[in-house]
Amino acid sequence: MTTEIHDLPAESAVHTSESLTVWLVDRIAVYLRRSPGEIDPTVPLAEYGLDSVAALSLCGDVEEDFDLVLEPTVAWDYPTVEALAAHLLEDLAGEVGRR
């Protein structure tokens, strides 16, 4: 079982929607047991069969790697990689603003 994840240093990195998209696609591919190339950032994750348990785990991963606390419903409200990346970018900018 390989779990190759592009580790982003959470604090210092400048996050872009590209870097977040790559991170999310890689992580979600692992949950779905697919290759990252198969994940279209504009397709709802539920269409790929991402279950609610995995969606909650994904929130945990974001928290761990980016030091963000997310609502567990975030993957429901931002159902594609594209939407999630945009939301995370906003959240991360907010975090920086608060620091």
């Binding site: 692992v30 279950d51 348990v53 995995a54």
Partner: peptide, 10 residues
């Protein structure tokens, strides 16, 4: 726990 082990199919 590996990511696969944190899904409904764990």
């Amino acid at each position: 726990l590996s990511p696969q082990d944190r899904t409904a199919l764990a």
